[in-house]
């Protein structure tokens, strides 16, 4: 058994889980079609990489600040975007991916463009330690988000998802609640992105690729909306289905596109035949 490989997969899985949990908060629990989750994720990655590279910040601090910066970005966007119809919010957030992609590719003095940025390896030279840290952070994320969704605030989020008008008529401040949901999602997306940056020690504009969003959507929808446990399952399911491809003997060149075809196909199949996924409690509206 190749333990290095398992550890590698484990780390990526944990990072995906953190991102997917927070995506579920805005999409599954609040009904915000935040198609910019990968944009926020990538932003966090770049932010953390740059903070450590340019300012020599301590990695843990950088990760946290990157999370905060991402949260601010999410909430700033919220200001005009949340006043729009649902569909437009989706498009604005999608548009964010395109803008960040263009920025990361062209602002060469800052991001080195397509060449990408080498980050800093995390405190842990050992990947095993990294895995443990990643799993811990994933667990913390789960616990925190679970507490939020079970709280009064979480109830308000779900009310907004189910019937925004009724929530307003019961005195809930729709705009502030949505902004908070987006902000929390953005924070964890940023942290997850930072983790990736400091694990791969390399970040480039491809993180903003549409295919990355499709992977995330597959994980979330397969697992099911409004269920954090479902998300965990969804991430595991997707990883378990696609990783074995590596061993069937496809050449590395074919592997990438093959996996993307499978992610896309899975997403389509679930959307058509079982839109609630494994443990989902709600439908996408």
């Amino acid at each position: 058994m190749n333990y290095d490989y398992l550890i590698h997969i484990g780390i990526l899985t944990a990072i995906y889980m953190i991102n997917a949990f927070s995506f579920n908060l805005s999409l599954g629990y609040t009904g915000l079609i935040n198609l910019g989750q990968m944009a926020l994720f990538g932003f966090g990655a770049y932010a953390s990489a740059l903070l450590t590279r340019l300012l020599g910040m301590n990695v843990w601090v950088a990760m946290f600040i990157a999370g905060l910066m991402t949260m601010v970005l999410g909430m700033v966007l919220a200001l005009p975007a949340l006043r729009l119809k649902k569909d437009y919010l989706a498009l604005v957030m999608l548009g964010l991916s395109f803008i960040l992609y263009a920025l990361s590719k062209n602002w060469i003095s800052l991001t080195r463009g397509s060449l990408g940025l080498p980050g800093t390896v995390k405190l842990f030279k050992s990947n095993l330690n990294f895995l443990i840290a990643a799993i811990l952070i994933a667990i913390i994320t789960y616990v925190v988000l679970k507490k939020i969704v079970n709280s009064k605030l979480g109830l308000v989020f779900q009310a907004i998802r189910d019937d925004e008008l009724s929530a307003a008529v019961l005195g809930k401040d729709i705009f502030i609640s949505k902004a908070i949901a987006l902000g929390i999602s953005a924070f964890f997306a940023g942290v997850a992105g930072s983790l990736l940056a400091h694990y791969l020690t390399f970040i480039d504009p491809s993180i903003f690729d549409l295919s990355q969003l499709v992977i995330l959507l597959s994980m979330l929808i397969v697992g099911g909306l409004a269920s954090l446990e479902g998300t965990a399952l969804g991430v595991l399911a997707i990883v378990l289905i696609t990783e074995p491809l590596r061993f069937i003997g496809f050449s590395p060149v074919l592997l990438g596109p093959m996996r993307e075809i499978i992610y896309a196909a899975l997403l389509l199949i679930i959307l058509i035949y079982r839109p609630r996924g494994l443990l989902g409690k709600v439908d996408i509206d």
Binding site: L210, L213, L217, E260, A264, A265, L268, L271
Partner: peptide, 11 residues
């Protein structure tokens, strides 16, 4: 779904 198809056809 159209996003999924987009990436599928691209791949």
């Amino acid at each position: 779904a159209s996003l999924a198809l987009l990436t599928m056809i691209n791949s």
